[in-house]
């Protein structure tokens, strides 16, 4: 049974049709890449799947919870990384922040734990952005180019984390621009002219 199913997703702004009927599903333990040119509607699609944006038509079916990592880090500059973990653990209703801290160790930024987000580099803010999406261990992960600003080593660690999530049975959808990383995906959805033109396994 698919953890995520998108049926005939459409989105238009007045006369601009961004999505023209997108259909796909993601099984448990599957990593799906969404590729396409700039402006092809990748981020719009992910926002709709995450419930961040209302589509003009269509239906999304999700089994379990969704973790969404937006393209630009959404953090609070006046709070430290530790405070972000505590705040989101409270919002998610988690008993502790142990998984968030595990992710901090995996992505190697524990030394900034008590730094305010406003003082962090772009890459470290992005790590925090990703940690906040993953720390509740959702069934479906939607990641919009989540490695922007990462150095090479962190980029490799990121894929280790994604592999770990996939092995634990999650459905993972990643927006990607990079051709060389496409072999990592179980499926690649090529978005063009608002539709999936190619669904490669």
């Amino acid at each position: 049974m698919a953890l995520l199913q998108a049926s005939d997703i459409q989105k238009h702004y007045r006369h601009n049709h961004v999505l023209r009927g997108v259909n796909f599903s993601v099984e448990p333990g599957t990593l799906v890449g969404v590729v396409g040119e700039n402006g092809s509607g990748k981020s719009t699609l992910l926002k709709i799947l995450a419930g961040e944006l209302q589509a003009s038509a269509g239906r999304v079916t999700v089994s379990g919870s969704v973790g969404y990592c937006p393209q630009q880090p959404v953090v609070n500059e006046s709070l430290t990384i530790r405070e972000h973990l505590d705040y989101f653990a409270t919002a998610y209703g988690l008993a502790d922040t142990s998984y968030g801290e595990h992710l901090i160790d995996e992505l190697h930024y524990r030394k900034f734990l008590h730094e305010r987000a406003g003082n962090l580099s772009g890459g470290t803010r992005q790590k925090l952005n990703l940690t906040l999406a993953l720390m509740r261990q959702p069934a479906v992960l939607l990641l919009d180019e989540p490695y922007q600003g990462f150095d090479w080593e962190t980029y490799l660690h990121f894929w280790d984390v994604v592999e770990e999530e996939k092995r634990s049975g999650k459905a993972v959808v990643v927006i990607s621009h990079l051709i060389f990383e496409q072999k990592k995906f179980d499926h690649i959805l090529h978005l063009k002219d608002g539709q999936i033109k190619e669904d490669r396994a």
């Binding site: 049974m1 589509a55 239906r59 999304v60 079916t61 999700v62 379990g64």
Partner: peptide, 18 residues
């Protein structure tokens, strides 16, 4: 939220369009 999301262990359906 821009869409109505129903989350259940078995499955949740949200209709993103009004």
């Amino acid at each position: 939220r821009k869409s109505s999301v129903l989350q259940t262990p078995e499955g949740a359906t949200h209709r993103p369009s009004a």
